[in-house]
């Protein structure tokens, strides 16, 4: 019975992760507008091409009349004419009104099947008086049609296709928190009982947690390169993450320096309790009260912007469970190895 349950959760973690990998990489991204060229509008009747990434928002046989593009200036909508449509772009012609509330224009693309696509500050008008848009240029508000997108990941500006990293980066940190929390509890128990059993648990937890911390750092660094443009930036969340990993490396150095001193369990437990308190302060408290680029911080808990989408949730939750279970499996292996070593040495 016990063996059955063991193989169920261990094999289950692998199957869940296989599902996450397949689903995470094969699910298409919802279309999103990324650029308008040219972005400077100078002459009347200028044509502009709006480009999108993600899955196609139009079929090749779609007619331009089925699409509508509206430019927004302040609270007023400027009409345009759709000239051509391709799966990833539309060509429009814009008649620039002589006056408008703001010369920075947002673009809305209304599609028959993919809903409404938005691009903030898509174009800038070189010359226009400040004032209301004349009635001849104003667009009637088009009725947005409900999108028929199927199973697809939400488009986020800057993040785009790299949103798939959410299934790796975030669960890896969750797994690290989980296993370090386990180590913290083990170290507290070690201080109460002074038993080597708890010390072995704490040591196994920290070693496993460090692996996941390093993986979290690596995936985070990769993500930062795509979205922020640099492998590493100075940010409270990132500083905290790095310090945490260094801190736990210190735990291993301390153990190694103690050698076979019989006080190693006690001292390592003291250090581990201190390290976990620092982890909570550095990763959960400090970043929330300072300005941070990292999502989910800067005052708002959780990561609401991603949480909204059901299709992402259907892969993200399995990813959290899968990585967590894999992490726990690795922890149990390490612990059993420690026990075997202890048994051999004390024979």
């Amino acid at each position: 019975m016990k063996g059955g349950w063991n193989w169920f959760w261990k094999g289950g973690s692998i199957l869940l992760l296989a599902y996450v990998i397949v689903r995470g990489f094969s699910t298409p991204l919802q279309p999103g507008l990324v650029s308008a060229t040219p972005s400077q509008l100078t002459i009347a009747g200028q044509s502009v091409i709006l480009t999108a990434v993600g899955q196609p928002f139009a079929e090749t046989e779609d007619l331009p009349e089925a699409f509508e593009v509206v430019l927004r200036s302040g609270d007023q909508l400027i009409q345009t004419e759709v000239l051509e449509v391709s799966p990833h772009s539309v060509k429009i012609s814009v008649n620039i009104p002589p006056s408008m509330p703001s010369r920075a224009l947002d673009a809305y693309l209304f599609t028959p099947a993919s809903g409404t696509l938005f691009l903030g500050n898509a174009c800038f008008v070189e010359e226009a008086a400040k004032g209301d848009v004349p009635p001849a240029f104003i667009a009637g508000a088009p009725l947005p049609k409900a999108p028929e997108l199927g199973f697809s990941f939400p488009y986020q500006p800057n993040i785009m296709e790299s949103i798939r990293n959410l299934l790796w980066h975030v669960p890896m940190w969750f797994a690290m928190f989980f296993i370090m929390g386990l180590g913290f509890v083990a170290s507290l128990a070690q201080l109460r009982t002074d038993s080597i059993q708890w010390d072995m648990r704490a040591e196994a937890a920290v070693k496993t947690g460090l692996v996941f911390g390093l993986l979290g750092l690596a995936t985070g660094s990769l993500w930062a390169r795509w979205t922020w443009g640099a492998w590493w930036v100075s940010d409270p969340q990132l500083n905290g993450a790095l310090v945490t990993v260094l801190l736990y490396s210190g735990y291993l150095i301390l153990r190694a320096a103690m050698g076979d001193d019989d006080r190693v369990g006690r001292l390592a437990a003291v250090y581990n309790v201190f390290a976990f308190v620092m982890l909570v302060i550095l990763l959960m408290v400090l970043p929330r009260y300072t300005e941070s680029l990292h999502p989910g911080k800067d005052g708002n808990p959780g990561f609401n912007s991603y949480d909204l989408d059901n299709s992402l949730r259907a892969v993200f939750y399995p990813a959290v469970i899968g990585w967590g279970a894999l992490c726990y499996w690795m922890y149990t292996l390490r612990l059993r190895m420690n026990r075997c070593t202890h048994h051999l040495l004390s024979r």
């Binding site: 500083n239 905290g240 790095l242 310090v243 260094l246 801190l247 490396s249 210190g250 150095i253 301390l254 320096a257 103690m258 001193d261 006080r263 001292l267 003291v270 250090y271 620092m278 302060i281 550095l282 400090l286």
Partner: peptide, 24 residues
């Protein structure tokens, strides 16, 4: 205090353990 409990090379150990803790 932690490093002083280690019999050999506690000065170097204090530096190694201390630096990351002092980063924040």
């Amino acid at each position: 205090a932690v490093a002083s409990q280690v019999r050999s090379g506690s000065g170097a150990l204090a530096a190694v353990l201390g630096l990351p803790l002092l980063l924040p």
